[in-house]
Amino acid sequence: MTTPVLEARDVTMRFGGLTAVRSVDITVNSGEIVGLIGPNGAGKTTFFNCLTGLYVPTEGTVSFRGKVLPPKPHLVTQAGIARTFQNIRLFANMTVLENVLVGRHTRTKEGLWSALLRGPGFKKAEAESEAKAMELLEFVGLAGKREHLARNLPYGEQRKLEIARALASEPGLLLLDEPTAGMNPQETRATEELVFSIRDKGVAVLVIEHDMRFIFNLCDRVAVLVQGEKLVEGTSEVVQADERVVAAYLGEPFEGDPGEAEAAEVAAAEAAAGSGGAESAGTKGEAQ
């Protein structure tokens, strides 16, 4: 029996006159991996920021396990949503272990007084945190590098560390923002395995990604965001078959024969502008 973990209802985010996200509904059930895809600038990260309290949505509500989330990032994490960032944001000058220990912040309570007095409770909590952190480092395969500075890790391991740090807050839902960006196929494959094993730990996952193979292998459901609006949501087959999705990524299929006059006009324009314009239009289409 699946229960909804995250319910975003009618989330709208406006920056002045620009509507970055328009009435998006998303539900993530427990034990589910949900993908969020869309062309660049579709509002995926903005939507993530709305979910995690970095932005306060202009309209709509986000609720986690039935409770509406407060609009403060640290309270959202406290409630049980952890995230990674699109451009890695580790604590660069802290060690690998310390990074994960910071992630434990919400699950420990020792304040300044307990740190100064160093009672048995403090020592127990520190030892417990460290054991949990080491467990997570084992899980992502970084246990051997606990004393390294985060900034010295290779790129792929930094991504892993960010995931370990997020998991340290014992979340019910993990938001991954492009976890495989810049990875080679082997690393992507390893990340896929990692996300599956995170799901097996009982953590629901919502993932933004551009790598379609990764997304369609991984996700139970995929939502497509285009220009701030949710276009379609469903299983991989449904999404892949949807014409509007194809259109959003590859452009409208060419319909109808251009009239002779129009063709001549285009030819004249191209001759005037040289071949540069045509080429750049071509690469643009491919990139999308």
């Binding site: 990032p73 960032f85 944001r89 802290m94 310390e98 912040h105």
Partner: peptide, 25 residues
């Protein structure tokens, strides 16, 4: 004692990257 504790780590985390620190709760 303060530096080597939960609160000290959160100070350093704030110094390093405040956005990430708040996202860590």
């Amino acid at each position: 004692r303060a530096a080597d504790s939960r609160i000290g780590r959160s100070w350093i985390a704030i110094r390093e990257d405040e956005t990430a620190a708040t996202a860590m709760g």
